[in-house]
Design a protein around this nucleic acid. Structure first.
Lengths: 183, 183
DNA sequence: ACGGTCATGTAAAGTGTTACATGATTAC
DNA sequence: GTAATCATGTAACACTTTACATGACCGT
């Protein structure tokens, strides 16, 4: 599934500009999809050319002018068809885990730093997840609840695992550290 | 981090052919990286051109001939430098979660099917993880242990979450089903 | 004044996926 | 005999990332 289809999906929920859609990727989709402006704007142009969305441009003298996109009936049908045909894949790409895998080739300092950074990122993601859940206005749909809960469950598992197992890569690696303290 | 660098990393552990490396991606790296032959073979050719690996071709009359790659000292240094510079990102791309997010636009049958399929895939991944851990021969390194445990911890969290929460998207969606049984 | 947010878009470069092309060997 | 596994590689295509280019508005 490509960014184009995801944009169409967002527009099936509500009218939005490219900028709004980017926000949606950063909040609602943050657990499972990323996209930048460089993918979103061309995608919207293509959707428009294909007649799957329409575009109202708010003229604000000079400047780019905010463009609000709306899905057409053809667009809605196309999205539903895409959902029917999409294979439910689930793919991870983690440089963090690559680094952990090759822990023996890294200095202990750097390892600690990387683990701390990952731990901080996880805490950040919790905060962002809370922000998303408590948006004032409409309550979460069933799908949003499921996905939000899924993200949180996996985040919790990751946090716990890292806390309890970071010693596997941080210790024994080099035998240089003279303090084996804490009886 | 690209496939080329990962291939170099594998070769820092042991000599291998392109085919062997593919196997490595499917087992050791299965939790966090995927790569096909179409990425691996060109990567090995480039590494060879750059002098980061050498290549011994086992001549077997006719046919392609198995090529066994070995890392050079320059290659080892280059990999260690890459580890130093790599940002520890962690990215998920999940069509499965997209489908769940848009559950309201899908028929209940299809939803059930998708959830069952994901559940089966998770069980498969457990089996593959066990196979990897119990390879006869050398015991797991610290890095391998950490990554293998991480993968398993997240798999367990995903399994549990799906079991306990699939009703969120499978039920209430359409009110058509006449059986609300089990008072 | 300055930094952050809002706002759109293009072009080039980098990367990965898929399909194609070929063929031997091993296990059932 | 048939399917799976071993084994390598190319070419076309698809997609994303990054850098660039521009500029207003709002709050402090």
């Amino acid at each position: 599934m490509d960014v184009k289809t995801l944009c169409l999906g967002v527009l099936c929920r509500q009218d939005a500009s490219g900028y709004d859609i980017k926000k949606h990727f950063e909040t609602a989709f943050s657990h499972f999809f990323v996209a930048g402006f460089g993918s979103i704007y061309p995608a919207l142009a293509e959707l428009s050319d294909a007649g799957l969305v329409t575009c109202d441009e708010e003229c604000r003298q000079g400047k780019p002018g905010r463009k609000v996109y709306k899905v057409t009936e053809a667009g809605r049908q196309a999205f539903i068809a895409a959902l029917r045909e999409t294979e439910p894949r689930h793919k991870v790409r983690s440089e963090f885990l690559v680094l952990m895998y090759f822990a023996e080739l890294m200095p202990t300092d750097r390892l600690r730093e990387v683990l701390d950074q990952r731990a901080r990122e996880i805490e950040d993601l919790f905060i962002r997840a809370d922000e998303f859940d408590h948006r004032f206005g409409h309550p979460l749909s069933a799908g949003e609840q499921f996905v939000s809960g899924y993200g949180r469950a996996l985040l919790e598992a990751a946090r716990k695992y890292i806390q309890e197992n970071r010693h596997l890569v941080e210790d024994d690696d080099e035998q240089e550290s003279p303090r084996r303290v804490t009886a």
